[in-house]
Design a binder for these strands. Structure first.
Lengths: 209, 209
DNA sequence: CCTTCTCGTGAACCACGGTTCACATTATTA
DNA sequence: TAATAATGTGAACCGTGGTTCACGAGAAGG
């Protein structure tokens, strides 16, 4: 019976931890707080995890796992480049809605002076998407669909930059406010924004036909 | 004589403060450290500034001032849209090279749970560039130079997203590594990257002729 | 030269939060 | 049921770092 509780508890602990880290950032997040909100004592936390760093890594890993799973979907679709971009944009929004804490934690490690290990984890995920996008852009070039004079690597970088900003804009407070500032009346209309992003990415990357 | 020293000292204090905040982030930055590296005692710091928050705001304000000055240059140029984009990209890199700490501090407040006041400051700057870009894109539309079907607000948002990521990529450790990951061999060639960005932004925003 | 006032100093204070550990509680086994 | 092991608890410990303040050094004025 204990084992079963543990299974669920562990999930809850990771979730509550991610939530706290996502909301307050690593430094301001408190182990005591996390323990309390997960309904356990601090001691237990330290039974399962070495220390705060270690626990953060566990939360991060747990959050990023979902992200890399999504990435694999991307490759499997058998559709045209334009459709692919559009679906990916939708996927990003959908993911944002379902896993806000994952995005926030990801954004968190982006900030200065993080542990080696957290960096490694993020870089690992990043390298998956980097490879995916680079390969894809290379394939586009091969098929003569990529815009003239564009280097696949640069295209992949540019593309991911846009997606990253989109994710942040939908999850991180500061970026959300900024989005409001720029978009004004268009702010709350996701469909329009997606369509606009679509148009611009299309123009930026794909050869016109 | 004291007054004169103060003038320079104040500069040094703000610079050393910004440096520490930029390097370590708000939480990990230490007032004692900052005082030491500026060659004064902690007491002095608290003579000039209420507390850590207040001091951070002063550093931030000081850093962002430079940023908003640059923005005014942007409007004054009398050149074609394509040239303008290109010069702006160069300006961003130049600025990054000269004021790495400003960019890092800006990135810093991007992260969760910052004081109201710091947010306000950043939003203020942001609103300047937002207005500048929006106006500019509206003017382009007026002159029938903006791409068909693109809303000026969305264009401005997209454009600034790209510039922001570029700045981060040149200043914030995590983004720099990421850039290396994506660009590989092109990584250290700024000119090529600028040219590529140029091509993509052009394609994304401007009507082809 | 003495007094007074300003300014700078850094040791001391204090709160906070990560971490530990002696103890309580619960499960397991004999 | 009693003994023993495993697990959970949270008060106490401790280092860190923001903040204060009693004191000293030096300038200004008489």
């Amino acid at each position: 019976m204990l084992q079963k509780l543990k299974e669920e508890k562990l999930r809850e602990i990771l979730e509550k931890g991610s939530k706290e880290f996502a909301e307050k950032g690593f430094e301001r997040a408190s182990m005591k707080n996390i323990a309390k909100s997960a309904g356990i004592s601090v001691g237990v936390l330290y039974k399962y995890y070495e220390n705060k760093d270690d626990f953060f890594n566990a939360c991060l890993e747990d959050s990023l796992k979902v992200l890399s799973e999504k990435m694999e979907e991307f490759i499997s679709w058998e559709i045209t480049p334009r459709e692919r971009i559009e679906r990916l944009l939708h996927l990003v929004l959908e993911f944002s809605r379902e896993n806000p804490d994952a995005v926030r934690m990801y954004h968190e490690i982006t900030s200065s002076s993080f542990t080696e290990k957290a960096r490694k984890l993020a870089t690992h995920i990043e390298s998956i998407s980097a490879k995916t996008y680079r390969d894809y852009m290379a394939a586009l070039k091969e098929a003569n669909l990529l815009k003239e004079d564009i280097i696949p690597e640069a295209a992949a970088f540019f593309f991911d930059n846009c997606l990253m900003m989109l994710q942040f804009s939908y999850n991180v407070d500061y970026f959300d406010e900024r989005k409001k500032l720029y978009l004004g009346s268009v702010y709350d209309n996701d469909d329009v924004l997606i369509k606009q992003m679509m148009l611009m990415l299309d123009g930026a990357l794909l050869r016109r036909d």
